[in-house]
Amino acid sequence: MQILEVEISTEYIALNDLLKISGVVDSGGAGKALVASGVVNVNGVQELRKTNKIRPGMVVQVADDVEIRVVAAEA
C-alpha cells in the first residue's frame, strides 16, 4: 500500500479535492466518481459524500492501494 502525507494550510479540504492534489486522480470530477464508486474510506468508514470536509489528523484510504494522511501545514 502506498502511503501519502498531504499538508493543508486551511481548516479543511473537500474529499474530491484531496484526491486530486494527492495525485490519486487527475481531476476533481474523477475524484467525485471515485468516491461515488464506494472504494473510499475516511478514518476506516466508507465515505460517499464527495465534498466531505477532511481535516488534519484524518486518514483517507482508497481501496487497498493508497492511504492519505492529512496534516496541518507548519505555521
Rank of each mutant, 00 (worst) to 15 (best):
Q61M: 12
V24K: 02
A36L: 08
M1Y: 15
G57F: 00
I3S: 15
I54Q: 08
V45W: 12
V70P: 04
G29N: 06
K50A: 11
E67N: 08
V70I: 10
N41M: 15
I13M: 09
A63H: 10
G38V: 03
S9Q: 07
R49H: 12
K53G: 06
E74H: 07
Q61K: 14
D26N: 05
K20M: 06
E11S: 12
L34Q: 01
D17N: 14
A14I: 13
G38H: 03
K20E: 07
E74P: 03
V66D: 05
E47V: 01
R69M: 05
A63F: 05
K32S: 15
E47T: 02
K20V: 02
E74G: 11
M1G: 15
L15P: 08
L48N: 09
S22G: 02
G31M: 05
A30V: 11
A14F: 14
G28C: 08
G23W: 01
A75Y: 06
P56G: 00
M58L: 06
A75G: 10
V45N: 15
N16W: 14
V35G: 06
I8G: 05
Q2P: 00
S22D: 03
D17T: 13
K32Q: 15
S22R: 02
R49I: 10
K32Y: 11
A30C: 09
V59L: 10
I68H: 12
G31T: 05
L15D: 07
S9A: 11
I68V: 12
K53L: 06
S37V: 00
G23I: 00
V35M: 09
K20L: 10
